[in-house]
Amino acid sequence: MATRNKAAGGFFLILAIFGGFIWGLMSGLPLEGAVLGTLIGIVLAVGVWLVDRRRG
């Protein structure tokens, strides 16, 4: 029986945190940018998890 590779959403989480932090630095609000990036990253990671779960 072939094993199926699982998708990982952690990449989107890290990318969104860094992106939010960079955006926040440019806006003068680095903490708010990092928090917003974290929330967006969580939504994306959960979305990847749900899609992967549906396929499995």
Rank of each mutant, 00 (worst) to 15 (best):
Met1Asn: 00
Ala2Trp: 06
Asn5Trp: 12
Lys6Cys: 05
Lys6Val: 14
Lys6Thr: 13
Lys6Pro: 05
Ala7Met: 14
Ala7Gln: 13
Gly9Ile: 00
Gly10Tyr: 08
Phe11Gln: 15
Phe11Val: 12
Phe11Arg: 15
Phe12Arg: 11
Phe12Pro: 06
Leu13His: 04
Leu13Pro: 01
Leu13Lys: 01
Ile14Gly: 12
Ile14Trp: 12
Leu15Glu: 05
Gly19Met: 15
Phe21Met: 13
Phe21Pro: 06
Phe21Trp: 07
Ile22Val: 13
Trp23Phe: 15
Trp23Gly: 15
Leu25Arg: 08
Met26Glu: 08
Ser27Gly: 14
Ser27Met: 11
Gly28Asp: 00
Gly28Asn: 05
Leu29Gly: 03
Leu29Tyr: 15
Pro30Glu: 14
Leu31Gly: 10
Leu31Thr: 15
Leu31Met: 06
Leu31Trp: 08
Glu32Ile: 06
Gly33Val: 02
Ala34Trp: 01
Ala34Met: 05
Ala34Thr: 07
Ala34Leu: 08
Ala34Ile: 02
Val35Tyr: 00
Leu36Arg: 03
Leu36Ser: 08
Leu36Gln: 09
Gly37Gln: 02
Gly37Leu: 10
Gly37Pro: 11
Gly37Met: 06
Gly37Cys: 01
Thr38Met: 09
Thr38His: 04
Leu39Thr: 07
Ile40Cys: 10
Ile40Tyr: 09
Gly41Gln: 03
Gly41Ala: 05
Gly41Asn: 00
Gly41Val: 02
Ile42Met: 08
Ile42Arg: 04
Ile42Asn: 00
Val43Phe: 09
Val43Lys: 07
Leu44His: 02
Leu44Glu: 04
Ala45Pro: 00
Ala45His: 00
Val46Asp: 08
Gly47Val: 06
Val48Ser: 00
Val48Cys: 04
Trp49His: 01
Leu50Phe: 15
Leu50Gln: 13
Val51Ala: 13
Asp52Val: 04
Asp52Met: 03
Asp52Ser: 00
Arg54Phe: 03
Arg54Gly: 05
Arg55His: 08
Arg55Val: 14
Gly56Glu: 11
